[in-house]
């Protein structure tokens, strides 16, 4: 066995790559159903949390699935007439009969400081205020940009940031300190987090982009969709 022979070297590398490649691929395939189930459940829990339909920590997986099936409607698609942007319209109801509309959610995705940030932002049934946000995935630095998933940032959306009217493509404003009452940004501001400034700026840009399209699309929506915002079935 001559280890310096090119045929040996190539054969060794091919064999080793095949061995490890097969092992890793096999493990990936074996765990794929679990991963897909987890991802689906994570999204459903996110919807429950987003619209405050219940506490996912207190619910079983089956209860979360049932709640989403009964109270979340994702059957409609929104289209922004200006940009052609299309997105599923997520509508949540407070009751199983789907008579009381809690609000709408729109999926957002955009470039953070390092990589895409993906999530859902929810607004009230009258589309005036945010009612929550969830980050489904991000690759920001843990402890720095990654702090956007912490309550100190997320709770601002649950508390309600006014997002109408949209002015010059801005539905909300990132500020370093709270604006004075009476200023144009009062009640429409989002506080940045120390150490996550660039990620917060990215979030402001991503959310403004998506909320602008969403509001425009809703304004131009078919009467059937528009009727939903008033709680019509």
């Amino acid at each position: 066995m001559n280890k310096r022979h090119p045929a040996y070297i190539v054969g060794f590398m091919v064999g080793l790559a095949a061995l490890f490649g097969t092992a890793v691929t096999g493990l990936n395939l074996a765990t794929r159903p679990i991963v897909e189930r987890n991802e689906k459940l994570v999204r459903q829990e996110a919807l429950v949390r987003l619209f405050r339909l219940g506490d996912p920590a207190q619910l079983t997986a089956a209860e979360v699935v049932g709640l989403v099936q009964r109270r979340i409607d994702e059957s409609r698609t929104l289209r922004d007439p200006e940009t052609g942007w299309e997105t599923p319209l997520i509508q949540a109801y407070a009751d199983d009969a789907r008579t009381q509309l809690v609000g709408y959610a729109v999926r957002f995705r955009g470039l953070g400081f390092w990589a895409p940030i993906e999530g859902l932002i929810a607004v009230s049934a009258d589309r005036q205020k945010t009612i929550g946000i969830v980050i489904l995935s991000h690759s920001e630095t843990p402890g720095l940009g990654g702090r956007i998933v912490e309550p100190v940032f997320m709770d601002q959306f649950a508390a309600g940031i006014r997002v109408l009217p949209v002015v010059d493509g801005k539905a909300l404003y990132l500020t370093a300190s709270p604006p004075e009452p009476g200023s144009p940004t009062y009640g429409r501001n989002l506080h940045a987090i120390t150490g996550a400034t660039q990620t917060c700026l990215a979030m402001e840009r991503i959310l403004n982009e998506h909320l602008t399209r969403f509001q425009r699309a809703m304004a131009a929506a078919t009467p059937a969709v528009a009727a939903r915002k008033d709680g019509g079935a």
């Binding site: 493990l27 765990t31 987890n38 994570v42």
Partner: peptide, 8 residues
């Protein structure tokens, strides 16, 4: 893979 599957 293990963390993603068992500790999401």
């Amino acid at each position: 893979i293990a963390i993603r599957a068992f500790f999401p």
